[in-house]
């Protein structure tokens, strides 16, 4: 329980850092910290497989890409052009949302399952158990999420495509675009 409390505090502080830090790289790093702390929470629940996947997918892949884009665009401290009034509206909405979540959690009649029982049910977080659920009961949802991600990827590729005709080979434009494709701009 104490472990969880400490981890929860670290996670909330990390999440606040994502929103409040001005420097984009610092905010992204704060998010990395939050996600890694979540992995530690999984470890305390004996869900080792989930923890490893959390670190590999979020820590090792997604956040690396986030930081890659931030560095590539060389984003500096964000100039605060937002109007003060908007900021107060945002604060208000945030506080109300947080209060709603807190009230909902406190009024929920369901008892939180015992951590021991949870780790018992997870059987040491074995991948077999997760595979049974993921590729059995939730097979359709799993496939649909896959299709959704693929659609997103195709959309992203379509958005960055050039709309003009491919230039004829040998013209300066073609050479330039070839250099471009090689990434030696």
């Amino acid at each position: 329980m104490i472990t969880f409390a400490v981890l929860a505090v670290v996670m909330v502080v990390g999440a606040l850092g994502v929103v409040l830090l001005r420097q984009p790289v610092h905010a992204a790093l704060s998010l990395v910290g939050t996600l890694l702390t979540l992995a530690v929470v999984f470890v305390t629940l004996q869900a080792h497989f989930l923890a490893a996947i959390q670190v590999i997918v979020y820590g090792g892949a997604i956040m690396v890409l986030f930081l890659f884009v931030i560095m590539l665009l060389n984003l500096k401290e964000e100039a605060t052009k937002t109007r003060a009034a908007y900021r107060w509206v945002a604060y208000g909405v945030g506080v109300i949302a947080a209060a709603a979540i807190a009230v909902g959690a406190l009024l929920d009649p369901r008892q939180a399952p015992d951590a021991l029982a949870v780790s018992e049910a997870l059987r040491g977080g074995s991948p077999e158990l997760i595979a049974e659920v993921l590729f059995g009961e939730f097979m359709l949802a799993f496939q649909l999420v896959g299709v959704l991600l693929l659609t997103g990827m195709v959309g992203a590729v379509a958005l960055v495509q050039r709309h003009n005709e491919p230039p004829r080979p040998g013209t300066p434009l073609a050479d330039a675009s070839r250099r471009d494709a090689r990434g030696t701009r």
Partner: peptide
Amino acid sequence: LDIGLLYVLAVTSIGVYGIFLGGW
């Protein structure tokens, strides 16, 4: 660990932060 293989992959994938944060 039962997931020793994933552990090694996960920990090494976090190690790369050192390089590109250092550069940035």
